[in-house]
Write a protein that binds this DNA or RNA. Structure first.
Length: 154
DNA sequence: GCCAACGTTGGC
DNA sequence: GCCAACGTTGGC
């Protein structure tokens, strides 16, 4: 079992959009960073992930998801009308991957970025490191539990 | 392989 | 809107 944190801008695709998706599932596509892509390729079915709202008034963790389909070629890379189209990617050698995720609950309160920074148990969390902008990062089991504890005691 | 220029991310 | 930090691009 692995734990992950995935960022998305709520103005583009927020946790409510996931909760309202068909079967409460979505394909997490559009990732165009190699490090983030490589983390997605490490995901296995049943892995747990947090949904983080970025680039918004109250950035922070807003809920949970579960990996329901492992890495597969991101279809948007082949679609010339999609903003994530990559003309250099070939169908016989796809450059970018996506995973499918299922909604697993929304927190009663957002665990804000400011709150995450205050928590000693989360000092090593990757997204809290200076300048880290990765949209997909791994968490340790203890970091996962620490965030859940913050969510439950807010 | 170096590195300057540029584009993007994302908090504030 | 600002800007620090980072990744990517492309000339050389």
């Amino acid at each position: 079992m692995n734990y992950w944190l995935l960022k998305s801008e709520p103005g583009v695709f927020g946790i409510d959009d996931l909760a309202e998706s068909r079967d409460r599932r979505t394909t997490w596509d559009g990732v165009r960073n190699y490090q983030a892509r490589n983390f997605m390729r490490e995901m296995t079915q049943g892995d747990e992930a947090f949904f983080y709202h970025s680039n918004c008034a109250r950035p922070g963790i807003v809920g949970r998801m579960r990996v329901v389909r492992e890495a597969h070629p991101d279809p948007t890379q082949f679609d010339p009308r999609d903003e994530h189209y990559d003309p250099r990617s070939r169908r016989d050698a796809p450059r970018w991957s996506a995973v499918d995720l299922e909604f697993a609950g929304r927190f009663a309160e957002t665990v804000t970025l400011a709150r995450l920074r205050e928590e000693p148990a989360l000092a090593d969390m990757l997204i809290l490191r200076r300048g880290n902008r990765l949209s997909v990062t791994p968490l340790t089991a203890s970091q996962w539990r620490a965030v859940l504890a913050l969510a439950e005691h807010s």
